[in-house]
């Protein structure tokens, strides 16, 4: 089963569970605040189950679940359709140079990117947004973009300057952080 199908089925199931939970929670609300969440959750559970079942059925029958609505800009774009098309011969492997690459590799890179983002947020939490941003920019540009020293240094300097100017001019505020007492900007 392609990664995309797995993700779609598990995401659908998760959402059904979320709706079940929200509906169950809503039963404790005051009467006036209850109607909307209960109705919406019930609808969500029903449609969600129908959709997950339809997806599973489609996969069994046609080996295709996503339909025609998957975004072209999605990294895993068309992974499943590509496999299906290659299988039934409607896509010539030679002509498929514009088609997306192996979804597993892309997924790994996506998870890496999420890792970078989480790392950046952790850095903000510890070092404050100014230091963390400068650090993140320099490290990311050097490691991931493999650029020379010039872009990271100038870019980080300009960004931090811009942030400082903004905070002076238009009430931009920075999140509190752990080492505020030590760093103090």
């Amino acid at each position: 089963m392609p990664l995309q199908t797995k993700m779609r089925l598990s995401f659908g199931t998760l959402i059904v569970l979320v709706f079940a939970w929200t509906g169950w929670q809503a039963l404790d609300f005051a009467e006036l605040a209850r109607y909307m969440p209960v109705t919406m959750s019930a609808l969500g559970v029903t449609i969600g189950i129908v959709m997950v079942l339809t997806d599973a059925f489609n996969w069994k029958r046609r080996r295709l679940t996503t339909g025609d609505d998957v975004s072209e800009t999605a990294a895993l774009y068309g992974a499943e359709e590509r496999e299906a098309a290659l299988r039934d011969g409607s896509l010539d492997p030679e002509a498929a140079d514009d088609a997306p690459e192996d979804p597993r590799k892309v997924a790994r890179r996506s998870i890496m990117m999420f890792g970078w983002i989480v790392g950046y947020v952790l850095a903000i939490w510890v070092l404050g947004i100014l230091v963390a941003s400068a650090l993140f920019l320099v490290v990311f540009l050097l490691v991931v973009a493999r650029s020379g020293w010039l872009l990271p240094v100038i870019g980080a300097a300009l960004t931090v300057t811009g942030m400082l100017v903004l905070s002076e001019l238009i009430n931009i505020e920075w999140p509190p952080y752990l080492l505020e007492g030590v760093i103090g900007i």
């Binding site: 659908g12 959402i15 979320v18 709706f19 929200t22 929670q25 809503a26 609300f29 005051a30 009467e31 006036l32 605040a33 909307m36 969440p37 919406m40 959750s41 609808l43 969500g44 449609i47 969600g48 129908v50 959709m51 339809t54 339909g67 025609d68 609505d69």
Partner: peptide, 28 residues
């Protein structure tokens, strides 16, 4: 993507309900 569209809408509605209910002092 009718089913997915409706489900996404419902999900959005539930996120929109987070907070103080409009007609009674109930946090949801």
């Amino acid at each position: 993507a009718a089913a997915a569209g409706v489900l996404a809408t419902l999900l959005g509605v539930m996120v929109g309900l987070i907070g103080l209910a409009p007609q009674v002092g109930q946090y949801r």
